[in-house]
Computed example of a mutant assay.
Amino acid sequence: MPIVHEIKRRHTHVVVWEVSETTEELLQILNLDAQQQAKFNELTDKRQREFLGIRACFHYLKIEGAILYEESGKPYIKSNHHISISHSWGKVAFAISKFAVGIDIEKNRPQKIRNIQQKFIREDEAVFIEKKKLDDYLHVIWGIKEAQYKLHDGNLWSFLNHYRTQPFKYNYNHQIICEIIDEEHHTQYYTAYYDRIKDGFYLIYVLDNIL
């Protein structure tokens, strides 16, 4: 099974799985139950492969049961652990943690990320970005804010007003403090982690915990 990246901490387990097998091979490996098969049959081809990728992560991590969804679309399982899921270009990133968690995986797309930087880079973030590593900083900060958005259940929508990444040095600080600022201007602090993984993808996850 093509696990291309794995992170194990005392409280958190993250895997990235590359969906490289055929749909038929995946179905043989995973042996879906009747409920899972019915859900699978409702999906488009692309969504079917994403669904199987998530089930493959479950299989690898030996997690039992179904993924359930809040009204907002946030996934959860019947457990005292939290989960988060992200997809990008044939890769599925999955995190399970004792803490509330949000995860994001991003393909390296320099032109696209530069074109939208004004939508998510604050003035107090722009000042610590090294110009020669601009694309790396943009992908990491975008990924942190995407993960925060998922962690906070999508209730705060502005990547400029509601999410802030504290100063860090790319490729030196792999543990970053980030903030969520609510409508009453109260600030909560979180810990973000990032890695550059196979095929140039960026993997970022955020925990509701200051370590």
Rank of each mutant, 00 (worst) to 15 (best):
residue 2 P to S: 13
residue 8 K to F: 14
residue 9 R to L: 15
residue 11 H to F: 12
residue 12 T to N: 10
residue 17 W to F: 15
residue 18 E to R: 13
residue 22 T to D: 11
residue 22 T to N: 11
residue 24 E to T: 11
residue 25 E to H: 12
residue 26 L to I: 03
residue 37 Q to I: 01
residue 38 A to R: 13
residue 39 K to I: 05
residue 41 N to T: 07
residue 43 L to K: 10
residue 43 L to T: 03
residue 43 L to E: 02
residue 44 T to C: 07
residue 48 Q to E: 07
residue 48 Q to Y: 09
residue 57 C to S: 06
residue 58 F to G: 01
residue 60 Y to V: 10
residue 68 L to F: 14
residue 70 E to H: 14
residue 71 E to A: 14
residue 74 K to W: 05
residue 76 Y to T: 03
residue 79 S to E: 11
residue 83 I to T: 05
residue 83 I to A: 08
residue 85 I to S: 03
residue 85 I to F: 09
residue 86 S to E: 03
residue 88 S to R: 04
residue 89 W to G: 04
residue 89 W to K: 12
residue 89 W to Q: 14
residue 90 G to L: 08
residue 92 V to H: 03
residue 92 V to Y: 01
residue 95 A to F: 01
residue 97 S to A: 09
residue 98 K to P: 00
residue 98 K to W: 00
residue 100 A to P: 07
residue 101 V to L: 10
residue 102 G to F: 08
residue 105 I to W: 00
residue 114 R to S: 12
residue 116 I to V: 15
residue 117 Q to P: 02
residue 117 Q to G: 01
residue 118 Q to R: 10
residue 121 I to L: 11
residue 127 V to R: 09
residue 136 D to R: 05
residue 137 Y to L: 09
residue 138 L to E: 00
residue 138 L to V: 06
residue 140 V to W: 00
residue 141 I to D: 02
residue 142 W to F: 14
residue 142 W to G: 01
residue 143 G to Y: 03
residue 143 G to S: 12
residue 144 I to L: 04
residue 146 E to H: 07
residue 150 K to E: 05
residue 152 H to N: 14
residue 155 N to P: 00
residue 162 H to E: 08
residue 163 Y to Q: 06
residue 167 P to Y: 08
residue 170 Y to Q: 10
residue 171 N to I: 06
residue 171 N to Q: 15
residue 174 H to Y: 14
residue 175 Q to H: 12
residue 176 I to Y: 11
residue 177 I to G: 02
residue 177 I to A: 11
residue 183 E to N: 15
residue 189 Y to W: 04
residue 190 Y to W: 07
residue 190 Y to H: 15
residue 190 Y to L: 14
residue 195 D to R: 13
residue 202 Y to L: 01
residue 204 I to W: 00
residue 205 Y to G: 02
residue 206 V to Y: 04
residue 206 V to S: 09
residue 208 D to E: 15
